[in-house]
Amino acid sequence: MSARVVPEDGRRRRRPTKQGAVLSERLIVDTALRLVGEHGADALSVRRLGAALGADPSALYRYFRNTDALLLALADELIGRAQDGWRATGEWRADLRAMGLRIHGSYLSQPQAALLAAHRTTGRPHETRAVETILGILRDGGFPDPLAVRIYHAFVDQALAFAAQDAAAAALPPAAAEADTEVWREVYGRLPADSHPHVAATFPLLAADMRDSGYPFALELMLAAVAALHPDARG
C-alpha cells in the first residue's frame, strides 16, 4: 500500500460510501480500531477496511499512504483519547499520576491495537501534545530540564511497557487466559514450604495480587522516586 496522500481539503469524499457514510480520516481510524479490536492485526488491511467502510479500497490511499501510516494514526488516536477531558491541577505528582493512568487505560481499552502500536512513535498531533503536556508538568513542577527529560522518558516508557504487557494478557483467547490463571492455582499453590518457603508463605496474597495489573503500584513507586529527586527534597 503506497501512494501519494492528498491534502485534507482535497481528499474529502463528496459521495457517501455504500454504508451511507461520508469517508473521512476520523471514520477510517474509528473503523480500523473496531476491526482490529474484533479480529486482531489481520484486520488492518486495505481490503478488509474498504469492505467494512463500503468503499473502494483504493480510496483509502487518499488518506493514508500505507498501512503503517494508518497504524500510526491508530496509536495517535489512543494517545488522544487518554488526554480527552484531562485538566491540570498544578500539582505535578497528581497530574503525572492522572496522565499515566489515562495513557495506560486508553491502551487497555483497545488491547489488540495496543499490541500493534504501543511501541511506536507517531509524530502526530496527539502525541506531540502529550509530550508537551508531560514535559510542562515536570518543568512547571520545578524540575530542571535535564532531569525533566529523563523523568519524562522513564515515565512514558513505564506506562507504555505496562500497557503493552497488560494488553497482551487482555488479548489472550479465553482458554489461554484461563490456563494462565490455572498455573497459579495448580503450580504455585502446590509448591511445598520446604523447597519454596517464601511462595508458600505468601501464596494467597500473591495469587490475589497477580490477578490485577502491577502498573498502579509501579507508578506510585516511580512518583515516590521522582519526588526524592526534586530539588526541594535535596535542598
Rank of each mutant, 00 (worst) to 15 (best):
residue 190 R to M: 05
residue 218 A to G: 04
residue 189 G to C: 05
residue 166 D to W: 07
residue 88 A to V: 08
residue 117 A to Y: 08
residue 85 G to E: 00
residue 52 A to C: 07
residue 153 H to D: 14
residue 79 I to H: 04
residue 7 P to K: 00
residue 227 A to N: 09
residue 66 N to P: 02
residue 130 A to L: 14
residue 47 R to K: 14
residue 203 F to R: 08
residue 147 L to Y: 03
residue 81 R to S: 05
residue 217 F to L: 12
residue 140 D to G: 14
residue 79 I to Q: 10
residue 123 G to E: 04
residue 33 L to G: 07
residue 134 I to G: 02
residue 73 A to D: 08
residue 153 H to V: 10
residue 171 A to V: 03
residue 50 G to M: 03
residue 130 A to Y: 06
residue 96 L to Q: 01
residue 124 R to P: 08
residue 229 L to M: 15
residue 64 F to E: 05
residue 27 L to N: 00
residue 39 H to D: 14
residue 11 R to K: 04
residue 103 I to H: 10
residue 97 R to Q: 11
residue 176 A to R: 13
residue 224 A to K: 12
residue 137 I to N: 04
residue 142 G to T: 01
residue 60 L to R: 06
residue 42 D to S: 15
residue 10 G to R: 09
residue 10 G to Q: 11
residue 106 S to N: 00
residue 161 A to Q: 11
residue 39 H to I: 08
residue 80 G to A: 05
residue 163 A to M: 07
residue 56 D to R: 12
residue 162 F to G: 02
residue 145 D to E: 15
residue 12 R to Y: 03
residue 154 A to V: 13
residue 70 L to T: 02
residue 17 T to V: 06
residue 144 P to V: 01
residue 162 F to P: 01
residue 82 A to S: 12
residue 146 P to M: 02
residue 180 D to K: 13
residue 34 R to S: 10
residue 124 R to N: 02
residue 173 P to I: 06
residue 40 G to R: 06
residue 115 L to R: 14
residue 164 A to T: 00
residue 154 A to F: 13
residue 110 Q to L: 05
residue 169 A to V: 13
residue 196 H to Y: 15
residue 108 L to A: 08
residue 70 L to D: 01
residue 151 I to P: 05
residue 128 T to A: 06
residue 101 L to N: 08
residue 27 L to C: 06
residue 114 A to C: 04
residue 48 R to L: 14
residue 209 D to K: 13
residue 48 R to F: 07
residue 102 R to N: 13
residue 229 L to G: 10
residue 159 A to M: 01
residue 142 G to E: 07
residue 84 D to E: 14
residue 108 L to P: 06
residue 125 P to K: 04
residue 80 G to L: 00
residue 17 T to F: 09
residue 75 A to Y: 04
residue 4 R to N: 11
residue 161 A to M: 12
residue 5 V to H: 01
residue 234 R to N: 10
residue 152 Y to L: 00
residue 4 R to D: 12
residue 39 H to S: 15
residue 173 P to A: 09
residue 42 D to Y: 10
residue 23 L to M: 04
residue 196 H to T: 05
residue 24 S to W: 00
residue 203 F to W: 15
residue 117 A to W: 07
residue 188 Y to S: 10
residue 85 G to S: 02
residue 164 A to N: 08
residue 53 L to W: 01
residue 178 E to N: 11
residue 204 P to F: 01
residue 81 R to H: 05
residue 195 S to Q: 12
residue 20 G to M: 08
residue 52 A to Q: 01
residue 213 S to V: 05
residue 125 P to E: 02
residue 44 L to F: 07
residue 170 A to F: 04
residue 212 D to R: 14
residue 157 D to K: 10
residue 222 M to Q: 15
residue 182 E to S: 14
residue 225 A to D: 12
